[in-house]
């Protein structure tokens, strides 16, 4: 069995390589865009059908985030970004469990190059998310406290101890990028490998509980990514305690 950590290139458009994870990311974006268009096309005061479902999803996510943030106004400010993260990651994670993902493809040099692969099972995607998230955290910190006040958290010459604490804070900001991206990537990728191995060992019935487990983990990982972003923004925007 061949396990590829990197996403495989399937074709190229005008010299730009297109990997299978990119293709799936576009499919996920398309699905989300179409379903939100239909959900908001005829908005009604008493919702029904898909609008009802969307309202329920948005409302429960908002309630959850408000519980962490503690302030509705601040929550509403970052909600569009966080909710986009959540829905895209959730759809990408769950798309990887559909039949055909990782199993339909072409053989090249004896290895299967699948046409579809979950977008979050690619370190590039998760790294991009992590960098967006960390940059937003810094921007919201600067916006809430002011540039110099926020920068004092990292570069502080008032005493040697504060200087080294600041250095540690600076390193931990970069560690956030790594931890965000590796957590999501590792969890989704490991899930796909686990399913492949289990299906290879016992093709019938036995993979079923593992599929359920992956469904659960896909949701949890999407939630964790968003909640950590919210919590870090909360930490960045509150005044430092002295």
């Amino acid at each position: 069995m061949h396990v590829s950590v990197a996403a495989e290139q399937i074709f190229s458009v005008f010299g730009i390589p297109v990997s299978n994870t990119m293709l799936t990311a576009w499919v996920a974006i398309f699905l989300l865009a179409i379903s939100s268009y239909f959900a908001t096309r005829h908005m009604r005061k008493i919702p029904s059908g898909i609008q009802n479902f969307y309202e329920w999803a948005i409302e429960s996510l908002l309630g959850l985030m408000e519980g962490f943030m503690g302030d509705r106004k601040q929550t509403l400010k970052i909600f569009p970004l966080a909710a986009t993260f959540f829905f895209f990651i959730l759809v990408s994670n769950w798309m990887g469990l559909l039949p055909g993902f990782g199993s339909i493809g072409l053989f090249e040099e004896g290895n299967l190059i699948p046409f579809f692969r979950s977008a979050t099972a690619d370190l590039n995607t998760t790294l991009a998310f992590a960098m967006i998230s960390v940059i937003i955290i810094q921007i919201s910190g600067v916006m809430a406290l002011g540039f110099f006040h926020y920068g004092k958290k990292f570069i502080n010459f008032s005493s040697p101890i504060n200087f080294f604490v600041g250095l540690l804070e600076l390193i931990s900001e970069f560690a956030k990028i790594i931890s965000f991206s590796f957590r999501l990537f590792g969890s989704v990728f490991a899930g796909e490998v686990l399913l492949t191995i289990i299906t290879g060992l016992v093709p019938y019935v036995v993979p079923l509980p593992f599929l359920g487990l992956e469904l659960f983990f896909g949701g949890i990982q999407a939630l964790v990514f968003v909640l950590l972003t919210v919590v870090f923004i909360k930490i960045a925007t509150t005044e430092m305690a002295h």
Binding site: G186, A190, L227
Partner: peptide, 25 residues
């Protein structure tokens, strides 16, 4: 909610090792 958050932070450590071991493989 707090438990899920803490568990995710802890679980990440095992996931780092998992990713590393996949890369070493």
């Amino acid at each position: 909610n707090m438990m899920i958050l803490g568990a995710a932070l802890t679980e990440a450590l095992a996931i780092y090792a998992l990713v590393l071991s996949f890369m070493m493989l």
